[in-house]
Amino acid sequence: MADYLLKKAAQLIPTILGVVTLVFFAIRLIPGDSTSYMAGDNLSGEAVDALRERMGLDVPVWQQYLDYLLGILKFDFGTTMVSGLPIGQLIMEALPVTFMIAFLTVLIACLIAVTLGTIAAFSAHKGKKLIDQVLTWIAMLVDLMPSFWMALLMMLVFTLSLGWLPASGPIDFSDPVGLLQRIALPLIVLSLGQIATIARITRTSVLEVLNEDYIRTARAFGTPQLLVVFRHALKNAAMPIITVAGLGFGNLLNGTVITEFIFSIPGIGTLLIGGINSRDYSLVQSVILVYSFLFILVNMMTDLIYKYFDPRVKF
């Protein structure tokens, strides 16, 4: 197990290094450097030089690159250009919000999606095509709805017309009920986006497993149908579901940016948009890196869970 983890981590190092390098040099592609924007036309040559020095832009590129790598290892991303606040701290404040929303979404989405997908698969297997088709169609429609549009519709209905749920306000961890109400709409929007994908893969893989020979064996030895689904089908279908849910995490992160923006939730997505609007490139670069690290981490975790579930894989 530890051996495997080490091996996996070793495999990831080139990718992570590539990600970090790509982000570093991509930002340098921007014509001029950040200071020329910040400085505008108002600063004298010396003032600009001073600013460059403060931002570490006065040394050769390779040294900037090394400083930057070392900084990442220490979770030190420098300071924002506009307000001069430490970026690491800003991210640490915003990350829990995003993380909580993402985690709850995965939980809700998996519960609902696996149930619906299994029902659809079971119906299809039994030849009850109508239930299957209705569920499949709903999944497709929900999946294709632009998330920001869905968010606005929800807001229109639940906030503006019915007044049931708030769409703005502070995020307060000490007030669970208020918190839940506050993040209810974003959670619904994000979950709907995830449910379709997971439900679809659940349907496909459960249906596939239901046609396997060992399911027939179980039935031929008198195992009731429902028990077959729970004991054999879901257990065997779990692996592709986990994989797809892991890959879908990328889409979930995409979605958090949009929902945070719409529902003004102070997560890292909002931080990112703010960074872009104020052209604070070191902030943008750091936040995108954090997103990428999160994604890599989740993929690695799904890989581990997958391996854990499959007895054929030896660590």
Binding site: P14, T15, I16, G18, V19, L22, V23, A26, I27, L29, I30, G250, N251, L253, N254, V257, I258, L272, I276, Y281, V284, Q285, I288, Y291, S292, F295, I296
Partner: peptide, 22 residues
């Protein structure tokens, strides 16, 4: 595939956002 893996390590919208920022 090494390059592809690097690009696939970003959630796609965030990659696009980063690119548009540049």
């Amino acid at each position: 595939m090494g390059i592809v893996d690097i690009f696939l390590s970003f959630p796609s919208l965030l990659l696009a956002i980063g690119m548009v920022a540049i």
